[in-house]
Design a protein around this nucleic acid. Structure first.
Lengths: 145, 145
DNA sequence: GCAGGTTACATAGACGTAGATACATCGATG
DNA sequence: CATCGATGTATCTACGTCTATGTAACCTGC
């Protein structure tokens, strides 16, 4: 395939990874900011819209944050009228989350914004690089569950 | 080369990337936590040790954080006795940062810890995957300076 | 040598995050 | 059915981060 194979240290890879991750975060915040929302909030609303009704812990797991963080974010989103909590009848510890009509509409908009931002960000990469990247990322994520 | 080429959407890549980034952050925090320090702090001290004397803005650029963040982290590290500020004679706006003897010793320890953590994290990857990954990450970082 | 723009650092406010803990409820076991 | 461990949420604290702003010092053109 392409390119001279360069010998890299693990620490070097970690540095580059951190740097790229920050670029990604900034890019998404900027693009979604144009829609008046932060990346974490939009991800939560979109996830709830996709898999409602969903419990807080499930949601946290799905988007990769801790339960405590999810709880407080959900709290803010409920206050903003995008999500609603619904106590479970069978298990009164549990809370089912759903999007409100307003939340559903925004979820749709934000999903489009998210996808567009992703396409922009990864546009310099070839299709082959993309699939290679996913492959590698999955290995890394699988390393420690 | 290896593998069936899988068609992936940009949004999918973004999701995997975020997930992997969190795994990385957690891994480093855990390993460096065993040395009693957080990842950002160790990175700052190590960077100062490597390129002292260094000014706050240069340091921020080197580790990929904003100047304000760097300023407050430096403040904490000075309080902890790991770094010291030294006013510049020529330009009195500037501050030169150096490590204290204690900071130098810890920088050495933390560098080793950082490298070890990186090797652990990336050990599931082949040398070729590592260099490919760096190549891709550089493209992403270059996308938006 | 002064005015106005620029640069270097510090500070303040807001947010997302993790971790630890508190609390209520569930379920299994004796 | 009483207890005790497990589970689902919420809350508290500390941290790292950004953006915006403040403040002091520099530099340039006149």
């Amino acid at each position: 395939m392409s390119g001279a194979k360069e010998r890299v240290t693990a620490a070097r890879v970690a540095d580059e990874f951190s740097r790229a991750a920050k670029v990604l975060v900034r890019h998404f915040n900027e693009r979604l900011g144009e829609h008046g929302v932060s990346t974490p909030r939009s991800r939560l609303v979109v996830e709830v819209a996709r898999s409602q009704p969903v419990r807080v812990t499930e949601l946290a797991l799905a988007v990769g944050i801790t339960q405590g963080t999810a709880s407080s974010l959900v709290d803010a989103l409920v206050r903003d009228g995008l999500l609603e909590r619904q106590a479970s009848a069978e298990d009164r510890r549990s809370v089912f989350l759903r999007v409100t009509p307003q939340g559903a509409a925004l979820a749709q908009e934000w999903t489009a914004g998210y996808e567009l931002a992703a396409e922009e960000l990864f546009s310099p990469l070839t299709a082959e690089q993309l699939s290679t990247l996913v492959e590698i990322l999955e290995v890394l994520s699988a390393g420690e569950e």
